[in-house]
């Protein structure tokens, strides 16, 4: 049993999961409905269709990342799958890493399908009311790429909570809390470091700043506005976000492996 076997096994099991089939069905429906909703716009059908397609895809990826990550380890433990698979020449670290890579591969495949589907519906919507500005395809696909990075990172966090938990509820809600806090952290940080923050108690300010640096900063992965309106994207920023995602994910995964190694399995 190698790491690659574990990755393949994970991917296969995900592809045959009925809940995920249902989620993917909803994803297709959301993307197909984009031209219908964007047609309500008066002057920016193209921009609306891009915005809605990105939002729909992002929502689907959020559901998948939290669902897959939060249920990945604990479910295998609960089903006693780990008891048998870990008797094979496969370490606990390889088990967690294999599952993570398999699930990431699934998120990658889903993102590719969503991006292609979105491109088709955007083209269709745009044909009805072309915009004066051309579609920034590169930025659009970059936005899908950074969304993918964000949700892989979120999935790693969900897996970390899953290695600590014996149920689905705890990792699911903890991941959701991290997602909300990570999406808001930049706004809050800018607020408290501004003039308004001077009125706050110093202790609270320091605590908030510390939380800001500890939490994943999801704002850096958001290229939606640039993709929708074809604004310039700083590739240096994107590269930094990529590096941030890789490093942060590695740390979270490492922590998940450490926790799983120390866990007593039935």
């Amino acid at each position: 049993m190698t790491l690659i076997n574990q990755v393949t096994l994970t991917l296969r099991s995900v592809l045959s999961d009925r809940i995920l089939h249902a989620i993917c069905g909803v994803a297709v429906l959301l993307v197909v409905l984009v031209p219908v909703f964007s047609s309500f716009s008066m002057r920016q059908v193209q921009e609306s269709s891009i915005g809605l397609a990105l939002s729909a895809s992002s929502l689907v990826l959020l559901v998948l990342a939290t669902q897959l990550g939060a249920s990945s380890v604990f479910r295998e433990v609960d089903r006693r799958y780990t008891s048998s698979v870990l008797t094979l020449p496969l370490s606990r670290g390889e088990f967690v890493a294999g599952r993570f890579l398999g699930l990431s591969l699934f998120l990658l495949l889903t993102t590719i399908i969503l991006a292609c589907g979105s491109a088709l519906v955007i083209l269709y919507a745009t044909s009805t009311y072309p915009s004066a500005r051309p579609i920034a395809w590169l930025t659009l696909f970059l936005a899908f790429g950074t969304d993918l990075l964000k949700y892989i990172l979120l999935m790693a966090i969900a897996m970390f909570f899953s290695t600590l938990s014996t149920s689905f509820t705890l990792p699911f809600f903890c991941t959701l809390a991290v997602y909300l806090a990570g999406s808001a952290s930049q706004e809050v940080f800018e607020y408290i470091t501004g003039s308004l923050g001077d009125q706050m108690p110093a202790m609270l300010r320091t605590l908030t700043e510390l939380t800001y640096y500890l939490l994943p900063n999801f704002s850096s992965f958001d290229l939606h506005v640039q993709a929708v309106y074809g604004l310039d994207v700083n590739l240096g920023d994107v590269a930094l976000s990529l590096l941030y995602a890789v490093v942060y994910t590695s740390i979270v995964l490492w922590a998940a492996i450490v926790c799983f190694k120390r866990r007593e399995l039935p």
Partner: peptide
């Protein structure tokens, strides 16, 4: 607006679109 911006993340464009549509 600040509160909405902080909590909706990347869905701001979709939310803004929805607001205008509801007014229309």
């Amino acid at each position: 607006a600040g509160l909405v911006r902080a909590t909706t993340g990347e869905h701001l464009t979709a939310l803004s679109f929805r607001t205008v549509i509801s007014v229309m």
